[in-house]
Design a protein around this nucleic acid. Structure first.
Lengths: 245, 245
DNA sequence: CGCCTGATTGACGCGGTTCAACCTCAGTGG
DNA sequence: CCACTGAGGTTGAACCGCGTCAATCAGGCG
C-alpha cells in the first residue's frame, strides 16, 4: 500500500472549482456555496496500481470519487473463483452511503487518485443537500444499467463476443475522451491485465488470450506492445460483439 | 394484454395508508401529508401472467411500484438469445425516473398489480420530496448489489450451483415472508417456468431440468407438482450453492 | 546473466449445449 | 367419457466450446 499523499502530484490545484471531474462527479449539480463545504470536507489520496482500496467485508470510514485512474470491484468465492463486477473510472463514486462495509474488494487497476470524505460528514451533508442525492441516484441508475448489460454478456455471449464487447466499450470510451467519432480508427490502452480481463468476462486467462490472438490474426484488431490496441474497422469489431446498431 | 381495472380485487382499499407495501416501497419514508399527495396521483392497474408491462426501447409514460405478484426484466439479442436481468417483487420500483424508455422488456411472471404514476407528475414530486429520492436511492443501491451478486453467479458458478443458489434465494424469501427461520423446512412455489429460470441463470432449459432432477434424486429437494419445492435441509442446499456462511 | 511475472500456445477432457424423442397434464370437443 | 391437441417438462445421445494442465515465450529488473 502506497503512503498516502495529501495532494496528488497530478492534480493541479486542490480547489473543487478546478477539479477535472467537477461536472461529472457526485458534486456536479452543486452550487458554489455547497461546493465550498465539500471543499472543506474532502481530502486527496493516491494509490498505486495493485493496491487494495477496500477489502470486502471490512468496515470503511471513507467514501469518495475517483479523480484519476481506474479501479475494479471484485467478488471472490471461498475456493478462489473470482468475478469482477464493475470498473470505476474518473468521476465514478466509491463506497455506499448507509452501509459500513463493501461486499466486494476494490482494487486499483492503474495508479489512482481519490477525492475522499469521512462517511459521517458526507452522509450528513447528503441528508441536507438534495442535489447530491439526486446526482448519486442518477449515477447509481446508470451503474445498474451497466451491470445488467454485463449480465447479458456473462450469461449469453461466447468468449469471442465477450472480448469484442469489451473492446467496443474501450473504443467508444477512447472516441468520447478524444472527441472522435466512434467508427474512427481507434487506438487505446487495454487498461487491465489478461488476468483481470478474464475475471471481468467470466473466462480463463487462456481463453482470453486465445480469442485476442484470433481477433489479431483475422485483422480485426492490431496489437502494439501487450496492451495497446488499434481498431481499423469499428463496425467489423461491433459485428463480432453480438450487438446491434 | 388484460383489460386494466381501476382497482385490483385483491387490494382491500385504495388508500395508501392501507397499502400492503406501505413500509417497503418508494413511499415508505413519506409523511402523512406527502402520502396524501401520492394518494391523489396514483392509480392501480392489473396484468395477467405473461403480459408485457413494458417493451424494451418503447417510450413509457408511467412509473410505479409492484403491489402484488412478480415481474421479470429481460434483455434479448437479435438472434433470440435471452437473459433475464432482474426479478421484481412486491414493493420493487418499476421504470426509471429521468429516462423515457427501458432497455429491457418487463413481463409479468405471475398476475401483477401495479401502483402507477404519470412520469411527469412523479418526477415533479420527486424533485420536491427528498424522502422519495432517498428511498429510491437506497432501493437502487440494493438492486445494484443484487445485480452484482448475480454477475458472480452468471460468470463463475456451475449449472448445479446456479440452480441451488436460486432455490436458496426462494427459501430465504419463504422464511422471511412466513416469519420462519432460514434453515427451517421450507416449502415454496418456484414462481417461474423452467424456460424463464434458464433465462435467469444463463442456461438452457435442458440443463436446468437435468440439474433440478439431480437435486431431487439426491434428496436435497422434494418436488410436489411441477412448481412446488420443499427443502428438508437448508444447509445442505446452501452448500450446493457455492456460498459460504 | 538468471529470475520472475505475465502472456501465448498446444493437447486433452469435461460440462453444458444441441438435437431429438418422449412424457405429463390440462383443456377441448366429439 | 375418452380421444385429440398443444404447451411445458424430462430424458437420452452426440457434439463442441471452453476449462484444465503443461510447456514455452517475452520482457523487465536486480
Amino acid at each position: 500500500m502506497t503512503v498516502p499523499t495529501l495532494l496528488s502530484p497530478d492534480v493541479r490545484s486542490d480547489r473543487c472549482g478546478d477539479c477535472p471531474i467537477r461536472y461529472r462527479a457526485v458534486c456536479s449539480h452543486c452550487e458554489a456555496d455547497q461546493l465550498a463545504i465539500l471543499d472543506q470536507m474532502k481530502s486527496y489520496r493516491s494509490y498505486s496500481a495493485g493496491d487494495t482500496l477496500i477489502w470486502a467485508g471490512e468496515p470503511v470510514s471513507k467514501l469518495g470519487s475517483i479523480v484519476k485512474g481506474c479501479a475494479s470491484l471484485t467478488r471472490t468465492m471461498e475456493d478462489g473463483r473470482r468475478q469482477m463486477v464493475g470498473l470505476l473510472f474518473p468521476s465514478d463514486f466509491l463506497g455506499r452511503p448507509g452501509r459500513e462495509a463493501s461486499p466486494y474488494d476494490v482494487i486499483a487497476a492503474t495508479d489512482v487518485t481519490l477525492c475522499q470524505f469521512e462517511r459521517e460528514s458526507f452522509e450528513t451533508f447528503l441528508g441536507a443537500t438534495p442535489q447530491i442525492g439526486n446526482r448519486l441516484l442518477e449515477m447509481t441508475l446508470d451503474e445498474l444499467d451497466a451491470a445488467r448489460e454485463w449480465m447479458l454478456l456473462l450469461g449469453r455471449k461466447t468468449a469471442r463476443e465477450k472480448i469484442a464487447s469489451f473492446l467496443v466499450i474501450l473504443a467508444r470510451r477512447d472516441a468520447l475522451l478524444n472527441k472522435k467519432f466512434p467508427g474512427d480508427h481507434a487506438k487505446f490502452d487495454m487498461i487491465i491485465s489478461r488476468e483481470s480481463l478474464a475475471d471481468y468476462l467470466g473466462l480463463t486467462i487462456e481463453t482470453t488470450s486465445r480469442q485476442i490472438s484470433a481477433l489479431k490474426n483475422e485483422g480485426i484488431i492490431r496489437l502494439t506492445g501487450k496492451r495497446m490496441v488499434e481498431v481499423p474497422d469499428f463496425d467489423r469489431l461491433l459485428r463480432e460483439s453480438g450487438e446491434d446498431a
